[in-house]
Simulated assay, not measured.
Amino acid sequence: MSAADAVRLDHAGEDAGHDQQNQRHRQADAPRQRLHGAVGLALVHHHVIKAGTEVPEDQYQESNDEQRLHGVGPGHGQAGIIRRSGAIDVKPRLVLSVLGLCLVLLFAALGRWQLDREASKRLQLAEAAAALAAPAEPLAAASRLAAAAPAKVAGEGFFIPTPRLLLDNQRRGSQVGVRLYCGFQPEGGQALLVDMGWLPLAPNRAMPGALCPVGDFTLAGLLVPPPAAGLPMGPGLVELPDTLGWLATRLELDAVSTAWRLDAPLAARVLRLDPALPIGHERDLELLANTLPPEKHRGYAIQWFGMAIAMLIIILVLNFRRRP
């Protein structure tokens, strides 16, 4: 055997020894390698699972972002819908309810006003009936009183030479006309207006030619307040052309006194002539000839109260009905 062969044998022995040693190490490390391999697989599997779950989470997040953008997302987005829906639904309901309650109060006030008008006119009719049933008072003394209650009177005096006064827009039945008023001075009393009666008005609104009486007269009738003026619109007294007197849309006693240039103001009440007297024109002692009777005011009051009740029912239904 040569030296080279000996060297090769030594190397072969060493390699075999190393192989045996490595095999022993591998056998000893096998359990640990299996453990590390299992842990590694588990970690890999865990990462794969996490990577797989990221997709739906990202998709859900993306969906949430889009839903929030359009205002239809869950959570905060739904709360926003509820708030916006409430703002659209509740606020107009509240405004309509407040307006409805204001209308209820208005309708109730108008109904109450109509009832007050009815009571006032019934009182006037009752006072007039009581006055007509009582003995006549002296005209001179009654003319000086500022009382508003009707009074049956009689007395002497004379008609004041003043221009005539025509009260416009007076109805008698279905016809339209005017009422003639003249100035009268009772003996020992205060000058006053006398209602001489109703005169028809021509279709072209030409004023009738009737004039006031002149001279001394004994008059009788009912002292009453002037006719109700209604809503004052425009001048209440207009002078007619060609000295035909004055045309009034409402009786304002101070304005008449000024227009007639009287030394003293007119009495607070006017005299409705007794229909039995032989002077004057068509007339009666009906106090409410050109106004609504009490029954009409009662009917209007019922209508206003009915509208108030109906409006209140509508408000209650709108606020307490069950929402779908």
Rank of each mutant, 00 (worst) to 15 (best):
A42S: 13
F107E: 01
D29Y: 04
V98G: 11
E62T: 15
G71R: 04
V48N: 00
V90A: 06
L94I: 15
Y60M: 13
L69E: 07
D58M: 09
D58T: 13
E57W: 05
H46Q: 11
G52N: 02
R68T: 04
Q78A: 10
I82C: 01
R68L: 14
Q67V: 00
S63F: 05
V39G: 01
R93F: 01
S97M: 12
G52E: 07
V104C: 15
D29G: 05
I49P: 00
H70C: 05
L43K: 12
T53H: 10
V44K: 01
D29C: 01
H70F: 14
H47W: 11
V104E: 00
G75W: 01
L101Q: 09
P92M: 06
A87I: 07
D89V: 12
D65F: 03
Q33V: 07
P74G: 08
H45P: 00
G100C: 05
V44L: 13
A79D: 07
Q33H: 12
S85R: 10
Q61C: 08
L101G: 05
L35G: 07
R93S: 13
E57K: 09
I88F: 08
A30S: 08
Q78W: 06
L99W: 09
P74V: 03
A108W: 12
P31C: 05
L106A: 14
E66D: 12
Q67A: 15
V48W: 05
L43N: 06
V98L: 14
L69S: 11
Y60A: 13
Y60K: 13
A79E: 07
L106Q: 13
V104A: 06
E57L: 12
G75R: 05
L103C: 15
L103R: 03
G75C: 02
D58C: 04
Q59A: 13
E62K: 14
V44E: 00
P56T: 06
V72T: 14
I88A: 15
I82V: 13
Q67P: 02
L106G: 07
N64D: 10
Q33E: 10
C102S: 13
L105I: 06
Q61R: 15
G80E: 03
L96C: 10
D29I: 01
D29H: 09
V48T: 05
P31T: 02
E66A: 11
V95N: 02
A108P: 02
C102L: 15
Q67F: 10
V55Q: 08
S97N: 03
V72E: 08
F107N: 03
E62N: 11
R34D: 09
V95C: 02
L99V: 15
L106T: 03
R34V: 03
K50C: 12
F107R: 00
L69M: 04
L69Y: 10
A51N: 03
G71S: 04
I49A: 15
